[in-house]
């Protein structure tokens, strides 16, 4: 009888031992679920708010017959390129329908590249004609750059000290030094070329340098790389807003994958506030 009473007591002791942990686990899971819910609600709210803003900005722009929308897009595209040609700097024109990206200088296409792959935010897929023309009807302007490689790499070299007449004479009399080996182009390191620009109509254009579509998928390295760090930073920013129960900022994006050397050439050639024309 005594033994069974002890057994019975020990059962309660065990339970007591884990009660704290159980409460912690339950509270922790409830908090996580609540945070997930709030995060989802505010994140979707941010998208809807951005859409409402785009809608408000588009009211009063071109109204048109929906059957002529493609022709009107074509007209806006050519008009925008003409406006870009009026400037002195290099501009970028992107035709997602034709899968082409080109740099133009005074109306002359100086570089044309085939887009290997692209994706656009859902925001752009839900646009009607008016919102489209408000966003893409005229050339956009680049506001800021961010890139995995340096945009304009410049080396600073210190000039040698001016030689005296004696030093020059001694050099001339000295035997010739062996020629330095020729520099080779195959020693160029494998770079990850990814750059992103903020445009003045509050969306981002991301250009990824790839040499095959499979490479585009394998290039995103979880835990490292420019793109991963950028995504984590964006998530942290959103999370910071949400912890304060504020709506995070939502920026629609267009991601374009083109050959790596062309992605690099465009980044290096575009001026700081370059114009960009886009047709979707």
């Amino acid at each position: 009888m005594k033994n069974s009473a002890e057994d019975f007591d020990s059962l309660f002791e065990k339970k007591k031992k884990y009660t704290g942990l159980k409460i912690f686990v339950v509270i922790f899971i409830v908090v996580l679920l609540a945070l997930t819910g709030v995060y989802s609600y505010l994140s979707i709210g941010a998208v809807r708010e951005r859409m409402a803003l785009a809608k408000a900005q588009s009211d009063g722009t071109i109204s048109g017959n929906p059957s002529l929308i493609d022709l009107m897009k074509e007209k806006a595209w050519v008009e925008s390129r003409l406006k870009m040609a009026a400037g002195d700097s290099i501009g970028l024109s992107i035709d997602l329908g034709q899968h082409t990206i080109q740099m133009e200088l005074k109306g002359v296409v100086v570089m044309k590249s085939k887009i290997r792959d692209y994706s656009t935010s859902g925001f752009f897929k839900r646009m009607d004609g008016n919102v489209y023309f408000a966003m893409f009807g005229t050339p956009l302007t680049i506001k800021a750059y961010e890139s995995s490689i340096e945009k304009n790499p410049f080396k600073v070299i210190q000039a040698p000290k001016t030689k005296t007449a004696e030093e020059i004479k001694a050099e001339e009399e000295a035997p010739l030094a062996p020629a330095k080996p020729a520099a080779t182009t195959d020693s160029i390191p494998d770079e990850n070329v990814f750059w992103t620009v903020k445009l003045d109509r509050d969306f981002e254009l991301n250009i990824q340098g790839i040499d095959s579509v499979a490479e585009a998928q394998s290039k995103y390295k979880l835990g490292k790389g420019f793109e991963f760090k950028r995504d984590i930073r964006n998530i942290m920013n959103s999370f910071e807003h949400i912890v304060k129960f504020k709506k995070p900022t939502y920026t629609p994006e267009i991601l374009i994958s083109i050959p790596e050397n062309e992605a690099k050439a465009i980044l290096r050639a575009l001026p700081r506030n370059a114009s960009v024309t886009i047709r979707i």
Partner: peptide, 24 residues
Amino acid sequence: IPALQESTVILPKLTSSQSSSGDN
């Protein structure tokens, strides 16, 4: 959540007040 943000299913159509007039 990022995928949900980009999904067209949950987003309303971006139609501004003048777009469907067709009186052009």
